[in-house]
Design a protein around this nucleic acid. Structure first.
Length: 464
RNA sequence: GGUCCCUUCGUCUAUCGGUUAGGACACAUGGUUUUCAUCCAUGAAAGAGGGGUUCGAUUCCCCUAGGGACCGCCA
């Protein structure tokens, strides 16, 4: 049995979105599960629309989420000569032919078909026509002689048997009039040359598969196995497109979603293994299989992404979390000075408690990063006379302490509550506002201990 | 319009002919934490509709409805 080889083959004509990443993930996981290889191929044969910027974005996205490919990136345009040679071979063998229809002629036919409400299909005009009839002023395209009779059957690993009448597939173009190869040719040739055994791709390629299988068969190549996975839909139920908000990985990383959480979410979107929800990397590889892939499209649900991220924040190793956090801050927020980093690291155990994203942790950490407390106008209103009085009392009472611990602070705060005939909120809220500038945030004891006595008295002295 | 595919709680899904149709997210309620959040408990919530096959269908078959994808000298 041949070693499993899969590939992800995006075109760099737009930013890679989350659906493409899932396709890459499934391919990668499948190959790893089988002890096989996974490759990245950039399909850049559309010169007009392909951009380096998108190629880099694709590469960076895969890197960010932790999908690793063999060797270097395959660039499809490097292999154009191979594709052209195959086209000429097909031509020589009589399996393809030159078509001299002008684009105006084709457009006209399409228009007429639309008017008559009949499906357009190229009329195979030049399939059997002699080239001596060829007009001089037209550069021909090369079309593949597609089967006209009978049916084709695709045994899809996800969708099962799919049957189609051959006459619904037209004689598709394999070489453009400028001599460049088209997608169906290039993809087939590359997949064959790269030794792909399994092709896992979006549902939207299903019809192409019938064309590509014909190319394989015409050349006596071994046909790989195909698996067409359902597309990811927006919450409105439409195919996810590059224009949709929050569709690239960047959209998620900038709000502080971690790669392992998103990977886990994407894995479970359209795939399942019993009732298991959390899959670490090893488990993802160990359990991934085709049987678990669902047949119906699934909708993207941001609240599940948040909740998955929250799970990872609370359950991964704190060192790893810290590294993710610093990295996130440097990329999307600000550089954290060493001293503040140390404080954050020590306090991470409580900073992470209230967070669904790295951005939340960053916000919770702000009182450790910035020494000057800026109080919002709304919060300032809460600092009335009694509040300021309580803060003064707190300062006086804690003056005697040599350092701050929960144990020695608790009796002081309890005492303040009692004496001033208030509740915990009456003491805690003004303290938090003065120390952090916000009504929301970590527990008050956590804040006090993390800042330490000196810093607390400094911040409190600036009030009132 | 043609071809193909899909259809279980709001969402992601389990079930591979016999279950009080299970789990997770979200939601609601209650409890713990002397704020918020966490955490815990509880609750509400689904087999698109109609025919078959069968002792028995969410599960198998057919029809209808709804949804989606594709129909480029794009990939």
């Amino acid at each position: 049995m041949k070693t499993v080889a899969t590939r992800f083959a995006p075109s760099p004509t737009g930013p890679l979105h989350i659906g493409g990443v899932r396709t890459a993930l499934f391919n990668w996981l499948y190959s790893k599960n089988k002890g096989g290889k996974f490759y990245l191929r950039i399909e850049d044969t559309d010169k007009e629309r392909s951009k380096d910027e998108f190629k880099n974005q694709i590469i960076n996205s895969l890197k960010w989420i932790g999908i690793y490919y063999e060797d270097n990136v395959y660039i499809q345009s490097d292999k154009i000569d191979d594709h052209i040679n195959v086209a000429n071979e097909l031509l020589k063998k009589g399996l393809a032919y030159k078509c001299y229809c002008s684009s105006e002629e084709i457009e006209e036919q399409k228009k007429r078909a639309k008017q008559k409400k009949i499906p357009y299909i190229y009329n195979r005009k030049w399939r059997d026509k002699s080239e001596t009839d060829a007009p001089k002023d037209i550069e021909p395209v090369i079309r593949f002689k597609s089967k006209v009779e009978g049916k084709s059957i695709l045994k899809d690993l996800v969708q099962g048997k799919i049957e189609i009448e051959n006459n619904t597939i037209e004689d598709f173009v394999i070489l453009r009039s400028d001599g460049s190869p088209t997608y169906n040719l290039s993809a087939s040739v590359d997949d064959h040359l790269m030794g792909m055994t399994h092709i896992i791709r979006g549902d939207d390629h299903k019809i192409n598969t019938f064309k590509q299988i014909q190319i394989y068969n015409a050349l006596n190549w071994k046909v790989p196995s195909f698996a067409h996975i359902p597309l990811i839909h927006t919450i409105e139920g439409k195919k996810l497109s590059k224009r949709d908000n929050a569709s690239t990985l960047d959209d998620y990383s900038k709000i502080g979603i971690m790669p392992n959480a998103l990977r886990n979410y994407l894995l479970r979107l359209g795939w399942s293994y019993k009732d298991k929800e959390i899959f670490n990397l090893d488990e993802s590889i160990k359990y991934f299989n085709m049987e678990g892939i669902g047949k119906s499209p699934s909708k993207l649900d941001i609240s599940r992404i948040y909740s998955m991220n929250e799970y990872y924040i609370k359950n991964i190793n704190e060192n790893d979390l810290f590294n993710f956090l610093i990295n996130y801050c440097e990329t999307f927020q600000e550089n954290i000075p060493d001293l503040a980093q140390k404080k954050i690291k020590k306090s991470l155990h409580f900073l992470k408690n209230k967070a669904k994203t790295l951005e939340d942790i960053y916000k919770n950490s702000k009182f450790l990063i910035n020494d000057n407390v800026k109080i919002e106008r709304d919060d300032k209103k809460l600092l009335d006379e009694t509040a300021i009085k309580i803060i003064k009392l707190f300062s006086d009472d804690t003056n005697k302490l040599s350092n701050f611990t929960r144990e020695n602070l608790e009796p002081i705060i309890n005492n303040l509550i009692k004496k001033n005939n208030t509740n915990f909120k009456g003491v805690g809220q003004p303290l938090r506002i003065c120390l952090t500038g916000s009504r929301f945030g970590p527990g008050i004891y956590d804040i006090l201990c993390a800042l330490g006595k000196k810093e607390v008295s400094k911040r409190l002295s600036q009030i009132g």
